[in-house]
Amino acid sequence: MKALVAVKRVVDYNVKVRVKADGSDVDIGNVKMSMNPFDEIAVEEAVRLKEAGKVSEIVVVSLGVKQCEETLRTAMAMGADRGILVETEAPLQPLAVAKLLKAVVDKEQPQLVILGKQAIDDDANQTGQMLAALLGWPQGTFASKVVVADSKVDVTREIDGGLETVALKLPAIVTTDLRLNEPRYVKLPNIMAAKKKPLDKTTPADLGVDPAPRLTVLKVAEPAKRSAGVKVASVQELVAKLKNEAKVL
């Protein structure tokens, strides 16, 4: 069975994000970029399925600028077999990403597509669901456990009040939650080996998809600065402040 994993290149989780002076976007000049952490979990899950003999080939796909190659190489160093870069300088929104991924799925015909539940930059949490709708495939989102058996996949999801397990008929879409697994570190020899793995490039035009944004970003702003705390002298003063200033009593 072939598995397809989508990976996004995002601003590193540890970078303190700055907004551009004109408020048009986040400033990503000279900022460390890494693989979206939820996508790392997706790659790890695919590799574990391959190690368990459930998956025979892992194809990893990324969409965006040329540097996304680095993200693909990381995924291949973790254990993916080959990479596909859909190269474009255009800004991509979830619907365009889902359409592009559908085109890749049509070509590659995987039985399982694994994606991060969301990307940590735009927190959209839409791509997996949109892709399932476009393909007409079943979806198991926010997976904390994935079991592949015969022609179905059982996906356990963390929901309010407990765990829910859904059985999906393959082919299917799975999006990963934080507790699904702990991604492995990348071995140096595997980095070297990953350089020799095939990486194909294509473009939105080749795939016949118009990735033009449908939504307009009006403004990007930093969160309000937290004001300094104050010390109160007595319980009475505290209660008065909670009543009159915080208005929580």
Partner: peptide, 8 residues
Amino acid sequence: GIVSQSEQ
């Protein structure tokens, strides 16, 4: 050997 792939 292992090499870090992100700041995390």
